[in-house]
Design a binder for these strands. Structure first.
Lengths: 241, 241
DNA sequence: CTGAAAGCGCTAACAG
DNA sequence: CTGTTAGCGCTTTCAG
């Protein structure tokens, strides 16, 4: 194991001592305040840069009552869709000066609630999340409501709880499936199957309905043998490790 | 858009006011100090629980000089290996009371340096990271050294910089490939190919050497036609979006 | 058993 | 142009 000595990071106070000025002068100088002379600003900024000064994140968050970080809760990451969404969130967040704290619910309602609990202490400014499978199946959204009531905003995506009053970003699962069927039919296909790993979730149901409607629209018969639903237990087996 | 009013969270001060005691009494009561009478502790703890009090994360971090959060930098998440590692880290971190701030370098040296810069302000207690491809190719590890010198520990995994003095967790790429060849040969296979998307990285080179040594060990001829290296530019094409 | 005060690092009135 | 002070939420001596 490599060794680590606790190394105190440079603070505004240290800089103040260095130049025999007050800490507020340093603070203002670093923030380029008009109140400070150019000479003072120059030397202080130079010193700060050279010595790798960085304003302490926790002090700022405490003062500003804002952490500039977003809590992201994913049902899983072992799935291309969610990994892509994550990449998108992380990227957009960074571009806007936000960090991202990410947790995986692993489809568990309990874990999801725990995560929310853990982060609802001023660690983050708000949540972006997609519900755990179990949460949707149980229809238990208490933790979401409490969080929102306690002043932490939530944005849901993909697997959303429509009954919760918050912003949501969703795909048009119904028309997506419907259009796909029509597209395949136009390409000349006659036997179009429906395979799903989430027929128990709302998004799965919507896709199935869209699939059926699509068949109907193009005049193809619905055939039960062409519908494959991977069951919950098999799915779980797959999800684990 | 849903609306959000800024809602002040319950603080120790509010509780103190509620019971006409000092904030230090509340603090001690909540921490179950022996200095406080059972009666006082009971009523304060009850009130805190009922009103969903949570100690402010930033105040604690500031006071303790420790954030209980780890910065994780991944080259990509669109890759089963890294997604799995991430899951493992996140899980272990949570179990030990740590949060995880995750950023994606997207194989870019610049982005990697930026991320480190952004998080080296007291946001995290240390890093767990796997180098960006570009970083390894450039052999430019300044940012790692600076970070460690400034007192933020780094643990590297998989794609590590051996010259950096820090803890590392790596796979035995050389023997992994070697054993695989021997295993396949034992199974009766004669034409064993080597396909790699990272022949330019150390781990890729080690695997290749192991592959060759394995062939030698079992007495199979090395055949250049059985070696496929997906080139950097093709790889990049694949990595993007 | 309870409270006052200092301090973590920083900002922002307000004085001078 | 620079400094003093209070305060963000919390813990921790030190007094009482």
């Amino acid at each position: 194991m490599a060794n680590f000595v606790y190394m105190k990071k440079l603070t505004i106070k240290d800089i103040a001592k260095e130049f025999n000025v007050s800490i507020s002068t340093v603070s203002k100088a670093l923030n380029d305040s008009y109140e400070i002379s150019q000479a003072t600003k120059d030397k202080i900024q130079k010193y700060a840069k050279e010595n790798n000064y960085k304003p302490n994140f926790n002090a700022l968050s405490l003062k500003n009552r804002s952490t500039k970080t977003i809590g992201v809760i994913m049902p899983t990451m072992l799935n291309y869709f969610f990994a892509q969404v994550f990449k998108g969130i992380e990227d957009a967040a960074n571009k806007n000066g936000y960090k991202v704290i990410t947790c995986i619910s692993n489809q568990s309602h309990n874990k999801e609630a725990e995560i929310i609990e853990m982060l609802s202490n001023g660690s983050i400014d708000g949540f972006i999340l997609s519900m755990a499978k179990e949460t949707e199946l149980k229809n238990d959204f208490k933790h979401f409501n409490e969080t929102i009531e306690n002043g932490t905003p939530i944005v849901m995506f993909d697997r959303v709880a429509h009954s919760i009053d918050c912003d949501k970003v969703i795909a048009d699962d119904y028309n997506g499936a419907l259009n796909t069927v029509e597209f395949l039919h136009k390409k000349g296909h006659k036997k179009i199957a429906f395979i799903s790993t989430m027929s128990d979730l709302q998004i799965g149901k919507q896709r199935f309905l869209g699939y059926k409607k699509g068949l109907e629209n193009v005049g193809l018969p619905f055939n039960d043998d062409l519908v494959v639903n991977i069951l919950e237990k098999d799915y779980k087996k797959y999800e684990k490790k």
